[in-house]
Each structure stands twice: as structure tokens, then as C-alpha cells.
Simulated scan of single mutants.
Amino acid sequence: MSVFIQQLPALIGVVIGALGSYVVVVRGDQARFRREQAARWEERRLAVYADYAQSVKKTVTVTYRVAAKLGNDPHPDPLTLEEAKPLLADATTRRDPSGEALIMLGSPEVVDKARAWVVTAMEMEHFVRASRQDAEAWQALLERQRAGREGYYTAVRDDLGLPPGHSARWSLPAADPVPPQR
């Protein structure tokens, strides 16, 4: 038998081992690439979700302040409607592009919950722009807004695979009565 034929099984083993190593490395690189790509998209979605939430919350906060000036809300920093108009316009201007990013990158459930939340925020804005003085109606809007925000955050956590979070509903201590003057 020739030397070549005697060494052929070893040579075939080396070739098979090299091919096996190559396949393992390529598949490992592909899996790592997919994981890194998924992590990048997840980070981007989280940023879009947070940006949208902040833009809606800006509208909500300004409406709280105007409602306080109208006597509907106990917010400690009331604001007149005239002072609030530029802030509301800025909030809307900021919310529109973040809403587009949300539609592009968000899951359908998150987008649906975001829409429910923002519709309530827009109703709150309409309420204060109409200078309504109705504390009960305002309180109902607040409850809908809080439920909308909670639903949005729950959908975001589900989409990102995060554990359940805090509902952000906590009761505030009653205001201390003013001590008598001596």
C-alpha cells in the first residue's frame, strides 16, 4: 500500500475537523450577530417608548397646572391658560415625531395603548382650554389618564420582556393643617 493511502484516513479526519470547526465558528458568529442585533433594536424601542411617554406626560403635567388655576386640581404650581399655551404647543410639537417613531418601531399592542393614553391627554388639554370648572369631570379624566398610562407601561414591559413594574398609583398623605399662630 502506498504511503498516501495509508495516511488518507488521517487527512480526511483533518479536513472534516477543519470543516466542522469552520461551521461551528460561522454559526456562532451568526447567533452572536442576531443576539446583538436584537439587543440593539430592543434598546432603540425602549428609547422610543420612553421618549413618547415623556412627551405625553409633558402635556399631562401642563394640564394639571392649568386645572389647578381653574380650581379643579390641587397641583401646587398653578398656571394660567395663556401661560400654558406655548408649553402645550411645544408638548404637541414634540409628541408628533415621537409618535411616528413609536408607530414605526412599537408593537401593535404598545401603539394601541399609547393611542388610548394620548387621546385622554388630548381630552384633558381640551378640558382646560375650554376653561371648564368641574372638579368631578376633571377627576374622571385623571383616572382615565392614569389607567391609560398604566396600560401603556404594562404593554411596554410585556413587549420588552421586562417584569411587572409599579403602577405609579400611590396615595399622598393628607395635607397637615396649618398650626395656629402665636
Rank of each mutant, 00 (worst) to 15 (best):
164 P>V: 09
162 L>V: 00
65 R>A: 15
85 K>Y: 03
29 D>W: 01
105 L>V: 09
52 Y>K: 07
7 Q>R: 09
115 R>W: 00
97 P>K: 09
81 L>W: 04
46 L>F: 13
145 Q>M: 07
78 P>F: 02
126 H>M: 14
140 A>M: 07
17 G>C: 05
135 A>N: 04
60 V>Y: 07
1 M>A: 13
142 L>Q: 12
131 S>R: 13
118 V>T: 11
154 T>F: 00
136 E>C: 03
18 A>W: 06
153 Y>N: 13
178 V>S: 06
133 Q>R: 12
142 L>K: 08
20 G>P: 04
34 R>I: 03
127 F>D: 02
177 P>R: 06
45 R>F: 10
65 R>T: 12
132 R>C: 04
140 A>S: 12
63 T>F: 04
108 P>T: 10
92 T>M: 10
126 H>N: 13
27 R>D: 03
176 D>M: 09
136 E>M: 11
53 A>R: 08
33 F>Q: 05
14 V>M: 12
2 S>V: 03
173 P>E: 03
149 R>K: 15
127 F>H: 11
82 E>S: 10
112 D>L: 09
54 Q>S: 10
77 D>C: 02
172 L>M: 11
172 L>A: 12
160 L>M: 01
112 D>V: 05
53 A>D: 08
87 L>E: 13
3 V>M: 07
161 G>L: 06
126 H>R: 15
13 G>F: 06
76 P>A: 13
175 A>C: 01
160 L>C: 01
152 Y>K: 07
4 F>G: 13
173 P>G: 04
36 E>Q: 02
148 G>E: 07
50 A>Y: 11
97 P>Y: 08
132 R>S: 12
89 A>T: 09
94 R>C: 01
131 S>L: 10
98 S>H: 15
114 A>V: 08
112 D>G: 08
116 A>H: 09
157 R>I: 08
77 D>V: 14
165 G>D: 03
107 S>H: 11
167 S>H: 12
15 V>L: 12
49 Y>Q: 10
150 E>N: 13
20 G>V: 04
172 L>P: 02
120 T>G: 00
52 Y>V: 10
74 P>T: 05
111 V>L: 06
23 V>S: 02
155 A>W: 02
90 D>I: 02
104 M>N: 06
86 P>R: 03
57 K>P: 00
49 Y>W: 09
167 S>Y: 06
158 D>G: 05
28 G>F: 04
111 V>T: 12
81 L>F: 08
5 I>M: 13
120 T>V: 15
147 A>Q: 15
107 S>E: 15
56 V>P: 03
15 V>W: 03
48 V>T: 08
45 R>D: 08
64 Y>S: 05
72 N>D: 15
8 L>Y: 00
155 A>R: 07
96 D>A: 15
10 A>R: 06
35 R>F: 05
17 G>I: 03
171 S>H: 04
